[in-house]
Each structure stands twice: as structure tokens, then as C-alpha cells.
């Protein structure tokens, strides 16, 4: 049963991400990316990492894809993207090999017999409770730093995306061509 679910998820995820990486239409790429994110949370649920699956659903499929869809309003998404490829297939082949080699290098220590878990789950707790217990004891400082980082990113996003909020930002548009400036004034 687990094997069937895993293979269905794996094939669907790979196919959807291939569409994302090679499609010409931005809307197709974004929708398939969102669907792939949802299915990856299914993989986490199969693994037993329930909290991670829920966070994947909320953060990736909810926040990040909504942000992309929001950003899409600023871009012309209906046109097909024209891309000129100059690199040969040898580059892709070599990059694929190097990616596989990277995964092998980083995964090789897990084969060893002498691995001892450092942070084990507390006894008698299911996955979300155990993650909460570990996150607020051993990983408290990284958690707070991540919170500050998210605040900085939020402020940066607001400042960057909103125009005429700061004088120094509007100077960026001075050397833009007149057509886009005219479009802005409308």
C-alpha cells in the first residue's frame, strides 16, 4: 500500500516538475509547480513527518504560490516565453551527473553503521508534539533568527514592491525609457 502511494506520488511529482522546468507558458509552469508542492506534502505524510507535510501545504502551496500568483499580475503572463538556448545537451548531461554525484556524496554517510541520532524524539509523543518540544528547546535560537529574517524579508518586499514610498527608490525610474514611465502615470 505504501509502495503504491509512493510510486504514484513520485511519478506525478516528477512529471509535474518536468512541466514546470520545460514549459513555455508561465501559467502552466506555475500551476504545475503548485500541484507538485501539494503532492510533495503527500510524500511527507507517507514518511510520517506530519508536521512537515502540514507546513509544506501551508507555506509552499499557500503562501509562496499565492505570492507568485500575486506577482503575476505585474507581468504579462499570457504570452509564451521565447527563450533562446545556446548551450548544448552536453551541459545538461554533465549537470545531471554532477547533481546525482552531489546527492550521493551527501547521502553516503547515512549508509554507515555507526550513526547515532543526536536529537531523538521524546518518548510517547507523536510527530507534531515532538517537533514542538525540540524546536522550542534545542532549536530556539535558529527559530528566533528565522523569525527576524522573515520580518526583514516582509519589510523588504513591501519597500521594493510599493513605489513612491521612499524618494530614493523613485530615483531608480529616472533613467527608464519614457514609454514605461508614461504607463506608470496612467
Amino acid at each position: 500500500m505504501e509502495a503504491i502511494a509512493f510510486y504514484i506520488f513520485a511519478i506525478l511529482i516528477t512529471g509535474l516538475f518536468l512541466v514546470t522546468a520545460f514549459s513555455r507558458n508561465i501559467l502552466y509552469a506555475m500551476s504545475s509547480l503548485a500541484a507538485g508542492m501539494v503532492l510533495i506534502s503527500g510524500l511527507f505524510f507517507i514518511l510520517g513527518a506530519d508536521f512537515l507535510g502540514a507546513v509544506q501545504l501551508v507555506v509552499y502551496s499557500g503562501a509562496i504560490m499565492a505570492l507568485y500568483a500575486f506577482g503575476m499580475m505585474f507581468f504579462d503572463a499570457t504570452r509564451d516565453v521565447k527563450e533562446k538556448n545556446t548551450s548544448s545537451y552536453l551541459v545538461f548531461l554533465l549537470s545531471g551527473f554532477s547533481a546525482v554525484a552531489l546527492v550521493v556524496i551527501f547521502a553516503a554517510p547515512t549508509i554507515g553503521k555507526h550513526i547515532e541520532p543526536i536529537v531523538t524524539a521524546p518518548q510517547g509523543l507523536d510527530n507534531p508534539h515532538a517537533i514542538g518540544a525540540v524546536l522550542f528547546t534545542k532549536y530556539l535560537i535558529p527559530f528566533e533568527v528565522a523569525a527576524v529574517m522573515l520580518l526583514v524579508a516582509m519589510i523588504a518586499g513591501i519597500v521594493l514592491a510599493s513605489k513612491k514610498m521612499d524618494e530614493s527608490l523613485s530615483e531608480i525610474y529616472l533613467d527608464a525609457d519614457p514609454e514605461t514611465e508614461k504607463k506608470e502615470q496612467e
Binding site: V59, A63, I64, A146, M149, A161
Partner: peptide
């Protein structure tokens, strides 16, 4: 995931600019 979320927020702002 937290890093990815903040990366998207800042990156999309830069893309719009």
C-alpha cells in the same frame, strides 16, 4: 522553508522593480 518564503518575498519585489 522559512528561507524559501523570505527569498520569494524579496525576489518578487526585485522582479517587479
Amino acid at each position: 522553508m522559512a528561507v524559501a518564503a523570505s527569498e520569494v518575498a524579496v525576489g518578487l519585489g526585485l522582479l517587479i522593480l
